[in-house]
């Protein structure tokens, strides 16, 4: 514990020499994490993404232990506030918080005062007043987490907001990919399905582009924003991607195929000519996957509609990363909770 940190800390009010002692310089030169909220990946730097992935790898080590628990966030309170159904995301955040010894409170909006008309911001302020340090929120409206981040003091992690963003999903997808492909630079990643309504696709476009991947979006023209693609006006602020409406062509020499869940309610909205048509043209099948590179990785954010966007033989086949994605989800969320913990003022006690 070289005490040179003692020197660096001298100027900071309220720090003691003991604080200084433990502050070790990182082995690899990294960035200093300054982010209090995790809202989307659009403004992440490549270095920040790298730090999350590196931290997640250390967290995965903890999860492999006989007793997967470390005392890091003892005394912290993490609230999951879900205004939409979720199994894997909510459970992954809760397991992540518990593995770090935080206290976890789970609020489902259906059973909370939100159903009495309490506003989102009031709910969050109440949770903060009761000691929440981090609020993990899923909400059907795009931008809702941004409002919370502005209007109250707790850290906010966006666990999915409308069609907008799902940053922790994109980070766990990147983490999963990096375990199989050392470098994503120049890799062809096809995202197929309902791109228009997919927060997973949107956040993944950011994450994958930061990592240098070549992203191809594929889906029925009614479900792919028409103004994407190279040279497009970029109205959604997304980085340039390739759009290829024909799945067989999109899959040529692909390294990764990511299928999205087809939300059946879209059919009612008149955006699909029919499920049978969708299956015919866009289902990821073993024979279609044969057009991709031999070691192609198949991913899906879940929950899967087997037999619709993906054939069962692919969903559970040798190329499928789906289970890995789920188990990596806990490590990646531990990393996020750990990293933002250093930037928070403690909740009032």
């Amino acid at each position: 514990m070289t005490a040179s940190r003692g020197l660096q800390q001298r100027g900071a009010a309220g720090t003691s020499a003991s604080v200084a002692e433990a502050k070790r310089p990182p082995e690899t030169p990294g960035v200093t994490w300054r982010r209090k909220h995790i809202l989307d990946l659009d403004d992440f730097t490549a270095e920040e993404v790298e730090l999350v992935l590196q931290t997640a790898a250390a967290m995965a080590q903890v999860l492999r232990r006989g007793i997967p628990r470390v005392p890091t966030l003892r005394g912290r309170t993490i609230v999951t506030l879900f205004y939409e159904a979720s199994t894997r995301t909510r459970v992954a955040f809760e397991l992540a918080a518990k593995a770090l010894s935080a206290d976890v409170v789970s609020v489902a909006a259906q059973t909370s005062s939100a159903s009495k008309g309490e506003s989102l911001v009031d709910t969050a302020r109440t949770l903060r007043a009761m000691g929440a340090d981090v609020i993990v929120m899923r909400h059907p409206s795009a931008g809702a987490p941004y409002l919370l981040a502005e209007q109250q003091e707790a850290s906010v992690i966006n666990a999915g907001d409308g069609w907008h963003a799902h940053p922790s999903q994109a980070l766990l997808d990147l983490y999963t990919l990096r375990q199989h492909l050392a470098d994503l630079q120049g890799r062809k990643v096809v995202i197929v399905g309902d791109i228009l309504h997919s927060r997973v696709a949107r956040s993944n476009v950011w994450g994958l582009t930061h990592a240098g991947a070549h992203v191809v979006l594929c889906g029925p023209p009614t479900l792919v924003p028409s103004d994407l693609g190279p040279g497009a006006g970029d109205p959604l602020g997304l980085p340039p991607v390739e759009v290829e409406p024909v799945l067989d062509r999109a899959l040529e020499a692909a390294d990764v195929v990511m299928a999205l869940r087809l939300q059946r309610e879209r059919q009612q909205a008149g955006l699909l000519t029919g499920i049978a048509d969708y299956i015919k043209h866009y289902q990821v099948t073993a024979s279609r996957l044969a057009r991709a590179k031999p070691g192609v990785l198949f991913m899906h954010p879940g929950p899967m509609n087997e037999g619709i966007e993906v054939a069962p033989e692919v969903a559970r086949g040798p190329h499928s990363m789906v289970e890995e994605q789920v188990s990596n989800g806990v490590a990646v969320r531990m990393a996020l909770l750990y990293l933002i913990a250093g930037t928070q003022p403690r909740a009032p006690s």
């Binding site: 082995e27 250390a58 005392p71 990393a335």
Partner: peptide, 22 residues
């Protein structure tokens, strides 16, 4: 051994140390 996850000063630091592998 990396001790980042066992430190007692998490509330006092302005940024988290990078967690290395154990």
């Amino acid at each position: 051994l990396d001790i980042s996850l066992y430190r007692d000063d998490i509330h006092h630091l302005r940024a988290q140390p990078v967690v290395q592998s154990t």
